[in-house]
Structure formats: C-alpha cells, structure tokens
Nucleic acid binder design. Structure first.
Lengths: 349, 349
DNA sequence: CTGTTAGCGCGTTCAC
DNA sequence: GTGAACGCGCTAACAG
C-alpha cells in the first residue's frame, strides 16, 4: 500500500519525450505542439504526478510559502476573533495566489534566536506577515530592510503595514459619547506599546480636546487590555467623589471588567453609567448590556495585508529611489473602523 | 541593503575545506576533527549562513513541515478557543521537534481538488493533522492508507487519531443531572456526523438508560450546534405540557440558545430549570448564569496528536503485520474530559 | 517552431 | 577528510 514517488523523469519516459519537454508542458510554454502537450498532460493526469515543490523552489528561488507570525501567548488570550479572522483573510488571499501559509508562534526566545531571519535565510519563506507585534520590537526594522515583511494591524516607521484606523475610531467614539451629552468621560488605556492601544489613547485625547473637555489625570487610568485591569480601573472611577458619567475602555475585555465593577455597585447600565470598549470581540454582543464598541475589519485587514505583501519589491530588486541612497518610503495602508452602537451607551443620568 | 545568499560552497571556500566536510560539521558527524569542526562552525556563525531547507529536504526526502487542516468555515464559527487551543498545542510540539506548521483551510472545493493528496505528492509535507473533520469525509481513509495522517478530536475506523472522551463526558454529565434529582431530561443533539456530536448523543442515551429514565422522543430534539438551533429546541421543550426539569445541549452555544428561550419565558436558571452544555467555550463562563459544561483539553489533545503523528510509520516502511496482508490497527488515543460544574445546574424545582 | 542537451540550484551520502 | 553521484525540476542555449 504505497504510492510510488513519481518524478519528471518517469513522466518523460512514459511520454517518450525529454524531461525538459515535460517541464515546458507543465509550465504552459507555447513552444510545445498541441499534440505533444495533450499526450504529456494526459499521462500526468492519469499517473497523479505532482512536481516536487522543493526541487521547483530550488530552481525558481521561491518557496511559495508566506509566514504568519503571531505572539505565542496571544494565541491563547486573544483566541477570540481577532487572530482567527485575520488569518482567514490571509489564508484566503494566499490560496488565491497559490501560496501556502506557515504559522509561527513567536515567543521571547524565538525573537532572541533570530528565528525570523533564519526563516528567510534558510529559504523557507518568501515573505512574512507580523500580527500582534509591539512598537518596541525593533528587530523588525532590520528584518524589513532585508526581506519582504509587513505589519498586520500595527505600524512602525520604515516598515510597511496595513492597519485599522483606531485613532479615528476612538475619535468617533468620543464624538458619540459627547453627542449623547457626556462631559465627564473616564478613559482606561490599553498597552501603549501596541499600535491599537497607542492610537486609541490619542483618539481619546484629541476627542476630548475637540469637545473642550478637561483632561484631568483623574480621568485617565492605565490598563493592560485585561479584564482584571478594567475591573480595577472601573472600580477606581466609580469610587471617585465625582465619578465620570461614561467610561471609555481601550478594549472590550476591559469594558467587561468595568461592567463587573458597575454591577458590584448596583449601577444600571446605561441608565446610571455608560461603558464602551473597542475591538468588537464575540463576547461584546453576549454580555448584558451588549457593548458599544469599535469594530476592526480584521478579515479585510488580513486580505489587504497579503495583497500588499505581494506588491513589495523583493530584496533582490530593492533599489534606492534617490541618488543619495534614500529608500522608497514603506507603503502603509489604513482601513476605517466602524462604530458599533449597542445598549451599553446612553445619555448621562 | 541586501544580504548575500550564502551557500555551503561559500562556507567551504572560506574554511578551505570541501562541501561535504561542511555538511558533516553541520550534522555533527564525528569523523571531523575538533579543530576543523571549530573553524567551520566559527565561519558559519560569523557569516550567518543557514543551510537551504529546500535543498536539504530534497536530499533527505523530508520537508520538515506538518500540515494542520482546519475547516474553512469553522475558523470563523468556532473561532473560540477550540481551534486556537489545539493549534497552540500542535505548534508547541512541532517547534520542539524542529518542524514547522502549515495551516490549510479546507473547503469543499479543496477536498474535491484532492488538495490533501497533492500536498503529500508534491513533497511539501511529511504528515497531516486533521482538525474538525466529519465522520463522512471518506477521502481521509485513502489518504491515511498512503501517508501519515492523524485525526484530532475525531475518529474514523482505520485512521489513527487522538480525541477527547466525549462519550464518557456526556455520561458523567447525565450522572451529575441524575444525582441532582432530575428524571425528565431533555437532550438537544449536535451534528451527528461529527465525532463530538455522535459521542455526546451516545453518552446521553446510555446515561439515561443507566438511570432507568425513559427515552421518549419528546425529550430528544435535533440541533446543529448553533445558538439558534438551541434556541428553537429549547423553546419547544419549554412549551411542552410536561416540560423537562433539565436540558442537556450537546454544546455550549446551543445551551446559550436555551438560556435565551428560558429568559424569554421568565424562567430563572437554575431554580426553575437546569441547562447544561459541552465544550467549555470562553463564553460559557461569561453568560449568566455561568454554564455547567464538559471541558475538552484541546491543548493537550493537540500536543498528544502531534506526538502520535511522529510515531506513525511513514509510508516507506509501512508493512502488514500478518502474512495475510493485514495492516496493523490504527492507533487511537482517548483523553478524559472534565465535568465543569457552574451555576446553570441545580436540583429540580 | 519544436524539442533536446547540458548545467544549475544546494545539501547529503557513500565509497575511497 | 574528499570527490562524485544523487535528489528533482528549471532554464538557457542549441539543433533539427
């Protein structure tokens, strides 16, 4: 019960032609006559022959594989739709291009070992999509200088990327809150070394400024995207002498933590207090009240990122644009977010 | 700004030895003197040379890659911890073995194209882990006859696999309900052509039999694992003249649908009605009341599956055990589930 | 225009 | 410790 390993030689022999002829047929080269082509194709089909991708990759200098790097831990924590959605978008697009997707779970050790670089050097991959990296991951800069690398939903000077416009998203959220009549809005920041966290903080600040609200330090607390940090910050807000009428948490899990803090104090949402988040995770529409939040189109981001990756010049033909050796600017695409208004936001009491 | 592509030739030249010597050094062969070894290793380290994996794979007849096939759609639907957890377990174990993980999103088209077989034939992968396949996916049988293939959390006669013991899990759930005093237990089945759905149905039936409960058809409704199907079935149960005191849904999403049906009728859980599910998805501990459920250790299953895959004989040396040509039975491992008791289950009113 | 020959891409392995 | 052959397919140059 074994399948004989067929090679291009076997096909050539069976068809009574040379190996190169078979190769030309496979690659649809027009110099092969219809008759020969058909005969060879027939034999290939019947025999179930498939060209060996390793040999092909060697010859073409192209592995036909793209790596998708996700943080080792986040794959647990974020198991929610964030990653799976992005990966679906990436996988779809890669499949359309006939490429495959290698998933790498990145740990600190992985980074220290320089495993990113190794993947390229050993010829395993043609490009790399980085999901969930931190703005402090400086090794990416060197990597991007040498190879096709693209950031998915984060940004870094000099590295190409595709991301959601969380600055604008947070700004819109602020406008939503202000339009409801809120003037005392508490903000719980996320992790500032993620692009998402950083951008939402900026959006909050500028939104507050735009509405002429004071940015008292009481109204800005630090969180870390975890439910527990949201719970703690929420508790502090609610125990303030003059508590905010609305709390804007930089992501949904923290907003859910706030919900808990509010419930513990017998507050009814949104009557007594408005709580909003960001991400639109699955949970956001299952908690009660359902969360008003900022939706990021992760599937589309994955898709766009993959397309953009293919557009990047490979290192072989990357050339400075100017005679002084300046490189062309790294292309970056920003995709709009969507404000999702549900029941957790309402006018102040 | 380019990295010169180094080959084994370059290293050999720099070290003043032959290519084979370099190869032997890389593979820690003892016939190389310490001095030479050190010199070569030094050059390799300093130059950042990495052996080309395509060439190596060609020579060794081993790609160093394992495919993980997940259903194209499920990656949305199940985005919950089921897949991400299994994949984490798989990725961890593969990394420990120095292998990489190729993720394939399987659609109907994919199956029709015979893409599974193609991956092996073209030499891209050494083995395949199948997650979320149906018991009706008969193409797997042929595949497993020829190549290293293993089912993750499902089973099929003649195909090796590692799965959770959902039969036992459902049985325990029934014992839990019975021990609380329930005698009228309604069951909402899942998709019967999944191993999980099938096993939980069996567990329900045997559990009912064990407790001497009647299996009236009123008390068995068909669901399809979706929240909506759980909602509908739950509604039918609750509108029964003699409604069950407990509902056992074959998974959590359907149990959540039941919760909704109960809420619509003003029932308080678990005082008026017990509702339990299966899977222990993230949501299960976020809905109110939190769900009593059956937990499957997906991370461990992923890990065990990967280990088991490596133990499988490769097709090159697969031999019948008996002279009559019988093949050795496909190894299967079953991992215990865990009953998670939360607030959604209690004694009957 | 059709198809062939030769050599390449890169590392492994085995006889010497 | 080395040379040569091998694994498999691609491509440039060339002959019919």
């Amino acid at each position: 019960v074994v399948e004989k390993k067929l090679t291009i030689r076997d096909i050539a022999r069976l068809a009574g032609v040379s190996r190169s002829t078979v190769s030309l047929v496979i690659n649809d080269d027009r110099r092969i006559s219809d008759e020969t082509r058909r005969r060879v194709q027939d034999i290939i089909r019947k025999s179930g022959y498939e060209p060996n991708v390793l040999a092909r990759g060697l010859a073409r200098r192209r592995a036909g594989v793209i790596a998708v790097n996700v943080p080792r831990v986040a794959s647990h924590v974020f198991s929610d739709y964030y990653f799976s959605e992005a990966i679906s978008g990436i996988g779809d697009t890669l499949a359309a291009h006939g490429d495959r997707m290698l998933i790498e779970m990145v740990s600190d050790q992985y980074i220290q070992d320089g495993a990113h670089l190794k993947l390229f050097r050993e010829g395993r991959i043609d490009g790399m999509l980085l999901v969930g990296t931190l703005t402090t991951d400086s090794y990416i800069l060197d990597l991007a200088r040498l190879y096709r690398v693209l950031l998915v939903n984060s940004s870094m000077e000099g590295v190409p990327g595709v991301r959601a416009d969380n600055y604008q998203g947070a700004l819109e959220m602020m406008r939503h809150l202000v339009s409801l009549g809120h003037r005392r809005i508490g903000f719980i920041s996320g992790i500032e070394i993620t692009t998402v966290g950083f951008d939402r903080s900026r959006g909050f600040r500028d939104g507050a400024k735009e509405a002429g609200l004071s940015l008292s330090p009481d109204l800005c607390l630090d969180g870390n995207f975890s439910e527990e940090s949201g719970h703690q910050a929420g508790a502090r807000f609610l125990d303030l002498p003059a508590r905010p009428t609305a709390i804007f948490a930089a992501n949904d899990m923290m907003a859910i933590g706030c919900l808990k803090a509010a419930a513990e104090r017998g507050l009814s949402i949104p009557r007594d207090l408005t709580i909003v988040g960001g991400d639109d995770v699955t949970l956001a529409s299952y908690v009660r009240p359902r969360l008003t939040t900022i939706r990021q189109p992760m599937f589309d981001i994955g898709r766009e990122a993959t397309e953009a990756l293919f557009q990047l010049p490979s290192w072989r033909d990357r050339r400075p644009v100017a005679p002084d050796g300046r490189m062309p600017p790294a292309p970056t695409k920003v995709i709009p977010t969507e404000l999702v208004v549900r029941e957790s936001s309402g006018p102040p009491p």
